[in-house]
Amino acid sequence: MALSTEDIKKIAHLARIEVSDSDANATLSKLTGILGLIEQMQAVNTDGIVPMSHSQDVVQRLRDDVVTKTNQREAFQKISPAVGNGSDARAVDGGLYLVPKVIE
């Protein structure tokens, strides 16, 4: 499964990471090396083996439906990012987090 720079760009877009053409080329060679390492897995027959997601065979614990959280908006929005575009203002307004217009 050889990767191309087009694949890199597609994956990078899915992951929302900007890559330039030169980045894509450099990344391609590194990722190809890593995928080569990963390919070793294909030598093993895993028919009928149950996949292992967790190391302990335990089941989900359930939480009582009781409100335990209080309003911490002020503390949480103190660390909101600067609005960007050169301004020092925080990217919040009236308690809302601000982002460039969402288009539906």
Binding site: R63, D65, V66, V67, T68, K69, N71, R73, F76, Q77, G94, G95, L96, Y97
Partner: peptide, 20 residues
Amino acid sequence: NTKIFSGASTTYGAEPNTQA
């Protein structure tokens, strides 16, 4: 009363992000 994965209230109509 609370969210599916946390103890924050689900009451409708609160001030923005006060139940976040």
